[in-house]
Amino acid sequence: MDRVDTALRGISKSLRDAVLPAVDPADPLAQDQLGLVVRYVDFLRDRIDLLHGRERAELRYQAGIAAILLELAPEASAAGCLAVLAEAARQALADPEQATSDIRDCRDQLGTATTKALRELGRTGKARAIRHAVLARSRTRITRERLWFQPLGFDQMQADPAQLRPLLQHDPTYATKNP
């Protein structure tokens, strides 16, 4: 049985209760950094069960961008490569046994291919249409990322943290096309 959550809880408590009071008050660098370490351990504990889902959501997003490019610019020199990688992404998302690292590798390869295509197409007459489609497709992904990092306290977005889990499972705007 996995005890990572319990371990992280223990680490956080030890740092707060035992280590922090013992840090030299005249060393503000150490004081500040220890506080940030504790905060990040708590954040990680809150997110650890969702890490795999986040990788899948990222791959789903890159596959959505690839679909846009294949639809709007099938003649692009990177289209063949994009199509192969998009199919690999579809298969990876359909396989519940895929490891997190495999999903990430698939995402990285697809991301590189989409970047190459976007750089090529960014100088053509289709740039404007592609730009609008990419931005529209990116909305949910960005909201999801803002929700992801919300517990760290930088973001003043007014949002219910419970919105995160559904967005990890699918993009409601494109739900019918999601694997």
């Binding site: 890159q62 991301g111 590189t112 989409t114 970047t115 960014g122 730009r131 497709r137």
Partner: peptide, 11 residues
Amino acid sequence: EDSPVIEVALS
């Protein structure tokens, strides 16, 4: 990692 939003922004 790659970012389509950054790519269209730079373009």
